[in-house]
């Protein structure tokens, strides 16, 4: 795509545009479905009226207090997790390099549990604890895995180690907690967008608004890093600095998303891979991943709301089940294809 005299020339992957448009269309349908259906059915005009600020009291309450914050949280958290995963998978050159596999998520959980159990903090404090926990876990992995150049596989192995460590700390914390604290800790540990309000929407939305453009600016450097450190340097990429910025973006997105919704498994792992399989693209593909993540989580949440209306099933369990199956399929097909994991 070029303007005349080529002041502006962008390279656009045709199939990616089609896939993005398709994902956006499906996403729109899910948004409409989420806002209109439920215990109180609303018509599209009623929803539009409420959104325009001219709704009746009932519709207004249902949209602005119940459905819209929950929907937006799901969209933003899904997108944030997916972009975080896309960046990390690209940096580590491995589909397993995703924040939920390599310990960012469990680290966030440790931070949150310490706040809930040891400090007795409320919702905001818990979120801050989760944020801090995720960042500390990432820092540990960075220090242990990144000294003297990066190797994707080492990064993932260290990450899995940190993840296991955080998980055992989490279990220990729960055994030491009072019954009441243990119940609220356990509730937090199952990620959900149920009952999320405008604070979460604003926090994750602001993080996305800042970090996603930064990620997009660095996306081209990221696709150069995929060629290996030496080649990237030879092509004029400042390897260390670019990698650092990208990791910071990825960690913050994952940590803020987890702080808002609790640990939601496998969106970060699966969304970039699904997007990539649809676009047949190479490179990180941050925009299709973001759309896919938003769609997975919003559609997942709509499904648990409608399929199990009475039990208030958290969306974290749904993504966990589906993602687990996907992970098994991914590992099985990778190993079948290559015969080894080198």
């Amino acid at each position: 795509m070029r303007t005349r005299r080529e002041r502006l020339s962008l390279r656009v992957h045709g199939r990616s545009v089609v896939v993005c448009a398709g994902l956006a269309a499906v996403l729109f349908a899910v948004v409409v479905g989420t806002l209109t259906s439920g215990d109180f059915e609303l018509s599209v005009p009623e929803v539009l009226g409420a959104l325009a600020g001219q709704g009746e009291g009932g519709a207004d309450f249902i949209i602005f207090t119940l459905r819209l914050p929950r929907l937006l949280t799901a969209l933003f958290v899904g997108a944030a997790l997916a972009v975080s995963g896309a960046i990390l998978q690209s940096l580590s050159g491995n589909p397993l390099g995703s924040p939920d596999v390599i310990g960012f998520t469990n680290g966030s959980a440790t931070g949150a549990l310490i706040v809930i159990i040891a400090l007795g903090g409320g919702m905001i404090e818990t979120a801050l604890g989760a944020l801090a926990g995720g960042v500390v876990a990432a820092l540990l992995i960075y220090l242990l895995a990144f000294t003297g150049g990066v190797q994707g596989f080492r990064f993932i192995l260290v990450g899995i180690g940190i993840s296991a460590l955080a998980l055992s700390v989490n279990s220990y914390l729960i055994t030491r907690a009072s019954l009441h604290d243990a119940v609220s800790a356990q509730a937090w540990l199952i990620g959900s967008v149920n009952g999320r309000g405008w604070e979460q929407v604003t926090a994750v939305g602001a993080a996305l608004a800042i970090l996603l453009p930064l990620g997009l600016v660095y996306a081209r450097r990221l696709s150069m890093l995929e060629l290996g450190d030496d080649t990237a340097t030879a092509l004029g990429v400042g390897v260390e600095r670019s990698r650092f910025v990208l990791i910071v973006v990825s960690v913050l997105l994952a940590a803020i998303a987890t702080a808002a919704a609790g640990p939601i498994w496998f969106v970060a792992l699966a969304a970039p891979q699904l997007a990539r399989r649809l676009t047949h693209g190479t490179g990180p593909g941050l925009v299709p991943s973001a759309l896919m993540g938003a769609l997975l989580l919003a559609a997942g949440d709509l499904a648990v709301q409608r399929l199990f209306p009475t039990s208030q099933l958290p969306v974290g369990t749904a993504t966990g089940c589906l993602g687990g199956l996907y992970l098994i399929w991914l590992l099985a097909s990778e190993w079948r294809g290559k015969g080894s994991y080198t």
Partner: peptide, 14 residues
């Protein structure tokens, strides 16, 4: 990708 050093954010593919 070898063209990277000659490209810019808004001049990606001349």
């Amino acid at each position: 990708r070898g063209r990277y050093p000659h490209q810019r954010m808004l001049r990606q593919w001349s």
